[in-house]
Every structure is written in C-alpha cells, then in structure tokens.
C-alpha cells in the first residue's frame, strides 16, 4: 500500500496530468483524515496515562485531574458549547469556533506557551555560562559568532543613550547580516545537503519496502 501511494506521488510529479493532480489532492486529504484518527490514538494514550494515575492514586495524581479537566474544558468550549446558540446537534457540526473557545485560547494557551518558551532564555543562558569554555579555536568561533548574533539584534545605542552614527551600533547589524548570509549559511547548507540526501534515501527505502521499522516489528 505504501509502495502504491509513494510511486503514485513520484510519477505524478514527473508526469503531471489534470487527473493525476486531482488524485494527488484527494490522497493528501485522505492522509489528513487518517491523521485525525491517529490523533485519537494520541489523545487516548494521554487519557489512559492520566486516568491510570488517578485510579491508582499515584503520587501527584491531582495534576492529572488538572490535565484532564483542562482538556475537557477546551473540548467542551470548542465542540459542544461552540457559539452557545442553537441546538446541540447543530453546534457539534459547526466549523467556526465560539468566543469562549477563543477566549480560552487567547488568555490561557497563548500566555502559557509564550511564558514556557521565554523561561528557556534563563536556562539556555545558564547552561551556556556553565558549558561554554574557549578551550580551542573552534570553541572561540562558536562563542564569537553567538555573541555577535546576539548583539546584532540589540539596539545598543538606545541602551546606552548614544547618538546613532558610525559606531558599533550601526555596524553590528551589518556584521550580523553578513555572518547569517554567508559563513553561517555555508555551514547550514552543508548540513542541509546531507539531510536532503538522507531524506531521499530513506523515502526510497520506505517506498521500496526495504525500510519497515515504522510498521513495527
């Protein structure tokens, strides 16, 4: 089945035809439908893990209640409550999210997401302080590049109340741009070539049935 689907997509790219393109769209939609069912598996796993913790009264089971309650609240707000108007059967098949769902998204998920990732600023800085040591030339290159990139994105003239001009504040963003566009790009492009060749090789192995680890066993 994987062979047929894979070969169809490859052939369709090299021999484009209106029927083939339509088929490609259809198959991509099919994959999204199957992906929705795969999400059920993931959610069931989340539910089972937390439900077992609650049932067995394992340590910190109360937080599992919080997780499941938050999940239930969001699903209720988005699917069952919806717009809050009309009969339940109608709300269940309404595509537009209601205001309560959006309110929860904007006031709970967005700030939690941003704060959680902003917290990493402290931990990355602390880890860098503990591990970055200019032991050799390579380490010095890494540190210098990182420092220039960080300083290049900071308006230093405003920070030190300096007039804008030809001092380091004006030059730093230019140096930042040059490093990003040339030496850093060269290193990344070298990695990218390897990734691309690896992805093509793995895709071919999957289509030809040589690689079957994703099927388990």
């Amino acid at each position: 089945m994987g062979f047929i689907a894979g070969i169809f997509m490859v052939v369709n790219f090299f021999v484009p035809h209106a029927v083939g393109t339509q088929g490609e769209w259809m198959l991509m939609e099919w994959a999204r439908i199957i992906g929705a069912f795969a999400l059920i598996l993931g959610l069931a796993s989340l539910f089972r893990t937390h439900w077992n913790k609650i049932r067995r009264r394992q340590s910190q089971w109360g937080y599992s209640v919080v997780t499941l309650a938050s999940f239930a609240l969001m699903v209720w707000a988005g699917i069952i409550y919806g717009s809050g108007q009309g009969p339940l059967a109608e709300r269940l098949v309404t595509v537009k999210s209601g205001a309560l769902f959006e309110w929860l998204f904007n006031n709970v998920q967005v700030p939690l997401d941003a704060t959680m990732f902003s917290l990493l600023a402290f931990f990355i800085a602390s880890a860098a302080y503990r591990t970055f040591r200019a032991r050799n030339f390579e380490a010095i290159l890494l540190i210098v590049a990182a420092i220039i990139i960080m300083l290049g994105r900071v308006p230093m003239a405003e920070l030190f109340n300096l007039p804008h001009g030809e001092h380091i504040d004006a030059k730093m963003p230019q140096i930042y741009e040059w490093i990003m566009q040339f030496p850093a790009l060269a290193g990344k492009r070298g990695i990218l070539f390897g990734v691309a060749l690896g992805a093509i090789a793995t895709s071919l192995r999957i289509i030809l049935g040589i690689e079957r680890s994703h099927l388990g066993g």
Binding site: A121, I124, A125, A128, F137, E138, A139, L141, L142, I143, V144, A145, A146, I147, I148, I149, M150, R153, I179, M180, P183, A184, L185, A186, G187, K188, G190, I191
Partner: peptide, 16 residues
Amino acid sequence: WFLMVAFGAGFGNTVM
C-alpha cells in the same frame, strides 16, 4: 570552522 559559526549563529538566534 564553518559549522561552528553556523552553530554559534543558531544558538545566538535561539537565545534572542
């Protein structure tokens, strides 16, 4: 050396 510059740039961008 180029890889180190790329990693340093990646690290700097991630921090920022």
